[in-house]
């Protein structure tokens, strides 16, 4: 079977700096994959290239949504990538602070709705039912994520862990087949991390999602991932199951440094 996300020879240069250098990553359906690497290794750049925020200098990104044929993401804008079923969260929380929790999730439904200017002003029946559906669908997502008690709170007033979860809820609302999580556990306490671990597995099993996450919390990565990809200085240095990666000398070198450096 075709991998649902197939990244080939992805290269991104900023001036003279090669942030990504011929990276190849493939993700299978139903997989929880992790992208790890030291700070500045190019992980977030990788996300930005896939989701259309950056235009990669070289390489192909191909997606194969379940039950559909393959297509390339070349030249698509971020909103078009989202429409095709890739949704992401951000490393530094980027919620819409002037909106309520529910409205934040409803923004995720935006690309699955059709109402235009006149629809909004005249509110015909079709638009009313669309709006109602979106409201209920968003509420259901909040229930799944366990945020329903905050429905009408302003997003900015939420506790930190809840804000992280709201980002996931918002991404879910776009109906993705692949969820890209950029450091979802950053800044969370052990209890919250544990809940996140359960949530991600629950999402994979019940929502028919595949997940690619960037994470620094090794305990979380090792317990969660089916497959781990390691990058360092923009190059992919290893790939494998958690066990394989843990014992890979290249990986240990990247994280702990080379002995010969000390001499």
């Amino acid at each position: 079977m075709e991998p649902i996300l197939n990244v080939k020879n992805l290269t991104m240069t900023f001036g003279g700096l090669k942030a990504l250098d011929n990276v190849n990553i493939a993700i299978e359906k139903g997989q929880i994959a992790a992208l790890i690497g030291p700070n500045g290794a190019g992980k977030t750049t990788f996300f930005n290239c896939i989701t259309g925020i950056y235009e990669p200098s070289k390489g192909q990104v191909t997606i194969t949504p379940p039950g559909k044929s393959s297509q390339t993401l070349k030249g698509l804008k971020p909103n078009q990538v989202t429409e095709r079923g890739l949704a992401r969260t951000f490393q530094n929380i980027r919620l819409f602070q002037g909106m309520t929790v529910l409205e934040n999730v409803m923004i995720g439904r935006h690309c699955r709705m059709n109402a235009g200017i006149f629809g909004a002003m005249i509110r015909p029946k079709s638009q009313k039912s669309e709006e109602k559906k979106a409201t209920y669908a968003s509420y259901e997502i909040l229930e799944k994520i366990g945020l329903e008690k905050y429905v009408n709170e302003m997003a900015v007033n939420l506790p930190y862990g809840a804000q992280r979860r709201l980002e996931i809820a918002r991404a879910l609302a776009t109906d993705p087949f692949l969820l890209l999580l950029d450091e979802p556990a950053a800044g969370m306490n052990p209890q919250e991390t544990k809940e996140l671990d359960d949530l991600i597995i629950w999402l994979r099993d019940n929502e028919d999602l595949s997940i690619l996450l960037i994470e620094h919390d090794m305990k979380l990565v090792m317990s969660l991932s089916d497959r781990i990809h390691v990058v360092d200085y923009g190059k992919k240095i290893a790939e494998g199951t958690p066990k394989e990666v843990k014992s890979n000398p290249e990986v240990i070198k990247a994280y702990l440094g080379d002995d010969s450096d000390d001499a």
Binding site: T51, I53, K77, P78, N79, T82, E83, A87, R88, F90, R94, L95, F96, Q97, G98, M99, E103, M106, I107, G108, H110, C111, M113, A115, G116, I117, G119, A120, E131, A134, R170, A171, T174
Partner: peptide, 22 residues
């Protein structure tokens, strides 16, 4: 409406707004 929410999203965070499919 869908449009009004999109405006506010655009005001609050342009990058996130696009990433959410707007």
């Amino acid at each position: 409406s869908r449009l009004g929410r999109a405006w506010i999203a655009l005001r609050d965070d342009e990058v996130a707004c696009q990433a959410m499919g707007i």
